[in-house]
Amino acid sequence: MAPRLGARLAALLVPAALLLPGAAHAEKVVTEDSVGDVVTLADESTDLEDAVPAPSHGGVDVVRTSVAHGANRLRLTVSFRALERDPFQFTVFRVSTPKGQVDVLVERLGGKPISSIDRRGTTVECGGLRSKVDRGADTLTTSLPTSCLDAPRWVQVGVGAVGIAADVASPELAAIYADDAHRDGTVRDALAKGPKVRRG
């Protein structure tokens, strides 16, 4: 191809390429959590003030959270130190938006994760809500259409993980383990929130 013809084609194609629709963009924010900051409720206590450190329990130990807020979907990924293999585990995503707050709940009871959305005590229908576990990467990923959240301009997400370890011989001696992804070594009734993530 003659150099002059190549230059003319490039001059025509570059502006045309700029007119093509770009790939869907999502703002993504990753936050880190301390390793070994799990707590447990000892002696059948239900008071979070009585929680004691349980640094050796890795099954609910959140080490990283990723929030990707796109125009059409919100994708939430939690990385654990060592995700429970035979779980009785719950993960809560508390999603705050300019219009209010919802809880996205993910239950792992040994099979496929079960997801639901709760708004002020009422279950919200959300087609397209999905959760999956990657045991090789020790991650739990949940995604949902932003329309289920009224397409907010921004979100703030708190993440909490709770696991129950039962003694097969003495089920009444079950221990509860918990981690707040945005607190170091403490758990409260209200989850701590991550930074605002604006719609991409």
Rank of each mutant, 00 (worst) to 15 (best):
M1I: 15
L5F: 14
A11G: 07
V14N: 02
P15T: 00
A17W: 03
L18H: 01
L20Q: 06
A26L: 04
T31G: 05
E32D: 06
D33Q: 04
V35M: 02
G36N: 05
D37L: 05
D37M: 06
A42R: 12
D43H: 10
D47F: 05
D47H: 09
A51S: 14
P55Y: 03
S56M: 03
H57M: 03
H57P: 00
G58Y: 03
G59H: 01
D61P: 10
V62D: 01
R64V: 01
G70W: 02
R75C: 05
L76C: 05
V78W: 03
S79F: 00
S79V: 05
S79A: 11
A82G: 14
P87C: 09
Q89K: 08
Q89A: 12
Q89C: 10
F93E: 00
S96R: 15
P98E: 12
Q101R: 14
V102T: 03
L105N: 14
V106P: 08
E107V: 09
R108Y: 02
R108A: 12
G111K: 10
I114F: 09
I114L: 11
D118R: 14
G121Q: 11
G121H: 08
V124S: 07
V124E: 09
C126E: 07
A137I: 03
A137T: 06
D138E: 14
D138M: 07
T139V: 08
L140D: 06
T141W: 04
P145M: 04
T146V: 15
T146L: 02
C148G: 06
D150Y: 06
D150T: 12
A151G: 05
A151E: 15
R153A: 13
G160D: 03
A165E: 14
A165T: 15
A165D: 15
S170L: 11
A175T: 14
I176R: 09
Y177V: 10
H182D: 08
H182R: 13
K196P: 04
V197H: 02
R198H: 15
